[in-house]
Protein backbone atom coordinates (compact mmCIF):
# COMPACT_ATOMS: atom_id res chain seq x y z
CA UNK A 1 0.00 0.00 0.00
CA UNK A 2 1.24 3.42 -0.93
CA UNK A 3 0.86 6.18 1.63
CA UNK A 4 2.47 8.98 -0.34
CA UNK A 5 2.86 9.34 -4.07
CA UNK A 6 4.96 12.21 -5.41
CA UNK A 7 5.36 12.81 -9.14
CA UNK A 8 7.55 15.33 -10.95
CA UNK A 9 7.34 17.91 -8.18
CA UNK A 10 8.68 21.35 -9.14
CA UNK A 11 8.88 24.57 -7.13
CA UNK A 12 10.73 27.63 -8.36
CA UNK A 13 11.63 30.84 -6.56
CA UNK A 14 12.55 33.19 -9.37
CA UNK A 15 15.53 31.67 -11.16
CA UNK A 16 16.17 29.09 -8.47
CA UNK A 17 14.49 25.71 -8.73
CA UNK A 18 14.19 24.81 -5.04
CA UNK A 19 12.61 21.49 -5.98
CA UNK A 20 13.37 20.34 -9.48
CA UNK A 21 11.43 17.28 -10.67
CA UNK A 22 11.16 15.08 -7.62
CA UNK A 23 9.28 11.74 -7.71
CA UNK A 24 9.03 8.98 -5.11
CA UNK A 25 6.58 6.71 -3.31
CA UNK A 26 6.41 6.00 0.39
CA UNK A 27 4.79 2.74 1.50
CA UNK A 28 2.43 2.57 4.46
CA UNK A 29 4.32 1.92 7.67
CA UNK A 30 7.62 2.94 6.13
CA UNK A 31 10.17 5.19 7.82
CA UNK A 32 11.28 7.36 4.91
CA UNK A 33 14.17 9.80 5.06
CA UNK A 34 15.03 12.76 2.87
CA UNK A 35 18.71 13.44 3.35
CA UNK A 36 20.68 16.36 2.08
CA UNK A 37 22.69 19.45 3.00
CA UNK A 38 21.02 22.73 3.96
CA UNK A 39 19.43 24.36 0.95
CA UNK A 40 18.96 21.06 -0.88
CA UNK A 41 15.20 21.65 -1.07
CA UNK A 42 14.16 19.14 1.61
CA UNK A 43 11.92 21.47 3.58
CA UNK A 44 10.32 22.96 0.47
CA UNK A 45 9.51 19.47 -0.79
CA UNK A 46 8.16 18.42 2.59
CA UNK A 47 5.98 21.54 2.91
CA UNK A 48 4.47 20.85 -0.51
CA UNK A 49 3.71 17.26 0.51
CA UNK A 50 2.12 18.53 3.73
CA UNK A 51 -0.08 20.82 1.65
CA UNK A 52 1.43 24.07 2.97
CA UNK A 53 2.81 25.21 -0.39
CA UNK A 54 1.42 24.96 -3.85
CA UNK A 55 3.75 23.16 -6.29
CA UNK A 56 4.47 24.90 -9.61
CA UNK A 57 3.90 21.54 -11.26
CA UNK A 58 3.71 17.86 -10.43
CA UNK A 59 1.27 15.90 -8.34
CA UNK A 60 1.07 14.69 -4.77
CA UNK A 61 -1.35 12.18 -3.32
CA UNK A 62 -1.42 11.53 0.39
CA UNK A 63 -3.41 8.44 1.42
CA UNK A 64 -4.93 8.56 -2.03
CA UNK A 65 -6.10 12.17 -1.83
CA UNK A 66 -4.73 15.42 -3.24
CA UNK A 67 -3.16 17.70 -0.61
CA UNK A 68 -3.65 21.02 -2.41
CA UNK A 69 -5.73 23.07 -1.88
CA UNK A 70 -5.99 22.61 1.90
CA UNK A 71 -7.74 19.27 2.22
CA UNK A 72 -9.70 19.26 5.49
CA UNK A 73 -10.39 15.52 5.24
CA UNK A 74 -6.65 14.77 5.32
CA UNK A 75 -5.67 17.05 8.19
CA UNK A 76 -6.74 14.73 11.05
CA UNK A 77 -4.79 11.88 9.45
CA UNK A 78 -1.48 13.71 9.33
CA UNK A 79 0.81 14.95 12.07
CA UNK A 80 3.46 17.62 11.52
CA UNK A 81 6.48 18.82 13.38
CA UNK A 82 7.82 21.94 11.71
CA UNK A 83 11.42 23.05 11.60
CA UNK A 84 11.04 25.61 14.38
CA UNK A 85 9.21 24.86 17.60
CA UNK A 86 5.75 26.12 16.71
CA UNK A 87 4.27 26.68 20.17
CA UNK A 88 1.83 29.08 21.76
CA UNK A 89 3.75 31.67 23.81
CA UNK A 90 4.15 31.26 27.55
CA UNK A 91 2.25 28.02 27.97
CA UNK A 92 3.53 25.10 30.02
CA UNK A 93 4.33 21.80 28.33
CA UNK A 94 1.07 20.29 29.54
CA UNK A 95 -1.04 23.29 28.46
CA UNK A 96 0.69 23.23 25.11
CA UNK A 97 -0.07 19.61 24.25
CA UNK A 98 -3.60 19.87 25.67
CA UNK A 99 -4.24 22.86 23.41
CA UNK A 100 -3.06 20.90 20.37
CA UNK A 101 -5.14 17.93 21.54
CA UNK A 102 -8.23 20.16 21.66
CA UNK A 103 -7.55 21.34 18.10
CA UNK A 104 -7.88 17.71 17.01
CA UNK A 105 -10.75 16.88 19.35
CA UNK A 106 -8.58 14.62 21.49
CA UNK A 107 -9.14 14.16 25.24
CA UNK A 108 -6.75 15.68 27.77
CA UNK A 109 -6.00 12.20 29.09
CA UNK A 110 -4.50 11.19 25.75
CA UNK A 111 -2.43 14.39 25.76
CA UNK A 112 -1.06 13.60 29.21
CA UNK A 113 -0.29 10.03 28.10
CA UNK A 114 1.80 11.38 25.21
CA UNK A 115 3.63 13.71 27.58
CA UNK A 116 4.51 10.64 29.61
CA UNK A 117 5.55 8.67 26.53
CA UNK A 118 8.08 11.32 25.46
CA UNK A 119 9.40 11.52 29.03
CA UNK A 120 8.19 15.03 29.84
CA UNK A 121 5.83 14.33 32.74
CA UNK A 122 8.29 15.94 35.14
CA UNK A 123 8.44 19.02 32.91
CA UNK A 124 4.66 19.26 32.52
CA UNK A 125 4.44 22.49 34.51
CA UNK A 126 7.47 24.10 32.85
CA UNK A 127 6.94 26.84 30.27
CA UNK A 128 7.99 25.74 26.81
CA UNK A 129 10.42 28.66 26.57
CA UNK A 130 12.34 27.16 29.50
CA UNK A 131 12.63 23.65 28.04
CA UNK A 132 15.98 22.50 26.65
CA UNK A 133 16.27 22.06 22.90
CA UNK A 134 15.82 18.30 23.19
CA UNK A 135 12.82 18.61 25.50
CA UNK A 136 11.17 21.16 23.20
CA UNK A 137 11.63 18.80 20.24
CA UNK A 138 10.15 15.92 22.23
CA UNK A 139 7.17 18.09 23.02
CA UNK A 140 6.81 19.14 19.38
CA UNK A 141 6.86 15.49 18.33
CA UNK A 142 4.29 14.60 21.00
CA UNK A 143 2.11 17.49 19.75
CA UNK A 144 2.42 16.07 16.22
CA UNK A 145 1.39 12.59 17.37
CA UNK A 146 -1.24 13.39 19.99
CA UNK A 147 -4.12 12.61 17.61
CA UNK A 148 -2.52 9.32 16.45
CA UNK A 149 -2.11 10.33 12.80
CA UNK A 150 -1.52 7.79 10.04
CA UNK A 151 1.28 9.81 8.49
CA UNK A 152 3.83 11.94 10.37
CA UNK A 153 6.14 14.55 8.90
CA UNK A 154 9.22 15.49 10.90
CA UNK A 155 11.32 18.35 9.54
CA UNK A 156 14.86 18.12 10.90
CA UNK A 157 13.79 17.11 14.40
CA UNK A 158 17.35 16.83 15.69
CA UNK A 159 18.82 19.96 14.11
CA UNK A 160 20.76 22.08 16.63
CA UNK A 161 20.67 19.39 19.32
CA UNK A 162 23.82 18.19 21.05
CA UNK A 163 24.91 14.61 20.22
CA UNK A 164 23.54 13.15 23.45
CA UNK A 165 20.11 14.75 22.95
CA UNK A 166 20.10 13.52 19.33
CA UNK A 167 20.70 9.92 20.40
CA UNK A 168 17.94 10.20 23.01
CA UNK A 169 15.55 11.49 20.37
CA UNK A 170 16.47 8.62 18.03
CA UNK A 171 15.27 6.16 20.67
CA UNK A 172 11.94 7.93 20.70
CA UNK A 173 11.70 8.25 16.91
CA UNK A 174 12.65 4.68 16.11
CA UNK A 175 9.46 3.50 17.83
CA UNK A 176 6.91 5.81 16.27
CA UNK A 177 6.22 3.72 13.16
CA UNK A 178 5.87 0.45 15.11
CA UNK A 179 2.08 0.58 14.92
CA UNK A 180 2.08 0.81 11.13
CA UNK A 181 2.39 4.58 11.03
CA UNK A 182 4.16 6.13 8.05
CA UNK A 183 6.98 8.54 8.92
CA UNK A 184 8.70 11.04 6.63
CA UNK A 185 11.76 12.65 8.12
CA UNK A 186 14.16 15.21 6.70
CA UNK A 187 17.64 15.42 8.09
CA UNK A 188 21.08 16.60 7.19
CA UNK A 189 22.72 14.01 9.44
CA UNK A 190 23.96 10.94 7.56
CA UNK A 191 24.15 8.83 10.71
CA UNK A 192 20.58 9.75 11.60
CA UNK A 193 19.27 8.58 8.24
CA UNK A 194 21.27 5.37 8.56
CA UNK A 195 20.03 4.70 12.07
CA UNK A 196 16.34 5.47 11.58
CA UNK A 197 15.20 5.15 7.99
CA UNK A 198 13.99 2.14 6.02
CA UNK A 199 14.74 4.02 2.83
CA UNK A 200 16.62 7.24 2.17
CA UNK A 201 16.32 9.70 -0.68
CA UNK A 202 19.55 11.64 -1.09
CA UNK A 203 18.66 15.12 -2.23
CA UNK A 204 20.90 17.90 -3.51
CA UNK A 205 20.11 21.08 -5.41
CA UNK A 206 16.43 20.28 -5.68
CA UNK A 207 16.82 16.78 -7.07
CA UNK A 208 16.81 13.27 -5.70
CA UNK A 209 20.13 11.72 -6.64
CA UNK A 210 19.61 8.25 -5.19
CA UNK A 211 16.90 6.40 -3.34
CA UNK A 212 17.43 3.10 -1.55
CA UNK A 213 17.84 1.56 1.87
CA UNK A 214 20.92 2.88 3.67
CA UNK A 215 22.72 -0.46 3.39
CA UNK A 216 21.73 -0.77 -0.29
CA UNK A 217 23.13 2.69 -1.03
CA UNK A 218 26.45 1.80 0.55
CA UNK A 219 26.61 -1.61 -1.10
CA UNK A 220 26.00 -0.15 -4.55
CA UNK A 221 28.83 2.22 -4.00
CA UNK A 222 31.35 -0.65 -3.90
CA UNK A 223 33.40 1.79 -1.96
CA UNK A 224 36.73 0.74 -0.53
CA UNK A 225 37.13 -0.06 3.14
CA UNK A 226 39.51 2.25 4.96
CA UNK A 227 42.06 0.60 7.24
CA UNK A 228 44.03 2.82 9.57
CA UNK A 229 47.00 1.65 11.64
CA UNK A 230 49.35 3.51 13.97
CA UNK A 231 52.55 4.89 12.41
CA UNK A 232 55.82 2.96 12.86
CA UNK A 233 54.53 -0.60 12.37
CA UNK A 234 54.69 -0.81 8.61
CA UNK A 235 56.35 1.70 6.32
CA UNK A 236 54.36 3.51 3.64
CA UNK A 237 56.29 1.84 0.82
CA UNK A 238 55.81 -1.60 2.33
CA UNK A 239 52.10 -1.05 2.79
CA UNK A 240 51.59 0.10 -0.79
CA UNK A 241 53.10 -3.17 -1.98
CA UNK A 242 50.54 -5.33 -0.14
CA UNK A 243 48.27 -7.12 -2.59
CA UNK A 244 44.80 -5.65 -2.68
CA UNK A 245 45.74 -2.15 -1.45
CA UNK A 246 44.42 0.40 -3.92
CA UNK A 247 45.82 3.41 -2.25
CA UNK A 248 48.02 4.18 0.74
CA UNK A 249 48.69 7.50 2.44
CA UNK A 250 50.37 8.49 5.67
CA UNK A 251 49.14 11.34 7.80
CA UNK A 252 49.61 12.41 11.44
CA UNK A 253 47.14 9.76 12.67
CA UNK A 254 48.94 6.96 10.92
CA UNK A 255 48.80 4.91 7.78
CA UNK A 256 45.53 4.89 5.84
CA UNK A 257 44.95 2.09 3.35
CA UNK A 258 42.02 1.81 0.95
CA UNK A 259 41.06 -1.67 -0.19
CA UNK A 260 38.20 -3.69 -1.62
CA UNK A 261 39.70 -6.86 -0.13
CA UNK A 262 40.04 -6.08 3.58
CA UNK A 263 40.49 -9.72 4.69
CA UNK A 264 43.70 -10.30 2.71
CA UNK A 265 45.15 -6.91 3.60
CA UNK A 266 44.47 -7.40 7.33
CA UNK A 267 46.18 -10.82 7.22
CA UNK A 268 49.28 -9.34 5.55
CA UNK A 269 49.39 -6.52 8.12
CA UNK A 270 49.08 -9.01 10.98
CA UNK A 271 52.00 -11.08 9.63
CA UNK A 272 54.16 -7.96 9.59
CA UNK A 273 53.11 -7.02 13.14
CA UNK A 274 51.54 -3.80 11.94
CA UNK A 275 48.06 -3.94 13.52
CA UNK A 276 48.70 -1.47 16.40
CA UNK A 277 45.97 1.16 16.60
CA UNK A 278 43.84 -0.65 14.04
CA UNK A 279 40.66 0.99 12.77
CA UNK A 280 38.50 -0.38 10.00
CA UNK A 281 35.88 1.90 8.48
CA UNK A 282 33.37 0.77 5.92
CA UNK A 283 31.83 3.31 3.57
CA UNK A 284 29.03 5.47 4.95
CA UNK A 285 26.37 7.62 3.37
CA UNK A 286 28.95 10.39 3.36
CA UNK A 287 30.97 8.40 0.88
CA UNK A 288 27.81 7.82 -1.14
CA UNK A 289 27.21 11.57 -1.21
CA UNK A 290 30.83 12.22 -2.21
CA UNK A 291 30.55 9.60 -4.91
CA UNK A 292 27.37 10.93 -6.49
CA UNK A 293 27.99 14.67 -6.17
CA UNK A 294 31.77 14.70 -6.46
CA UNK A 295 32.01 16.94 -3.40
CA UNK A 296 32.52 16.47 0.34
CA UNK A 297 29.31 16.34 2.35
CA UNK A 298 28.79 19.45 4.43
CA UNK A 299 25.67 19.48 6.51
Amino acid sequence: MTAIEVRDLVKRYGELAAVDGVSFDVAKGEFFGILGPNGAGKTTALEMIEGLRQPDSGSIRLLGEPVWPRNAALLPKMGVQLQTSAFFERLTAREQIRTFAALYGVAERAADAWLERVGLTEKAATRTEQLSGGQAQRLAIACALVHEPEVVFLDEPTASLDPQARRNLWDLLSGINDSGRTVVLTTHYMDEAEALCDRVAIMDRGQILKLDSPSGLVRDLEAPVRITVAPGGVSLGEAAEIAGVDHAVEDETGLVLSTRHPAGVLTELAERGGLDGLQVKAATLEDVFLDITGREYRA
Binding site: E50, R70, A72, V80, L82, T84, A86, L103
Partner: peptide, 17 residues
Protein backbone atom coordinates in the same frame (compact mmCIF):
# COMPACT_ATOMS: atom_id res chain seq x y z
CA UNK B 1 4.58 38.25 13.65
CA UNK B 2 5.44 35.91 16.53
CA UNK B 3 3.19 33.16 15.26
CA UNK B 4 4.50 33.57 11.76
CA UNK B 5 8.11 33.40 12.90
CA UNK B 6 7.62 30.37 15.11
CA UNK B 7 5.62 28.78 12.27
CA UNK B 8 2.70 28.39 14.66
CA UNK B 9 0.50 29.93 11.94
CA UNK B 10 1.63 27.19 9.58
CA UNK B 11 1.11 24.58 12.25
CA UNK B 12 -2.43 25.82 12.88
CA UNK B 13 -3.06 25.82 9.14
CA UNK B 14 -2.42 22.07 9.23
CA UNK B 15 -4.81 21.48 12.14
CA UNK B 16 -8.39 20.58 11.25
CA UNK B 17 -9.64 23.95 12.46
Amino acid sequence: QGWRQSKLLRRLQLAPV
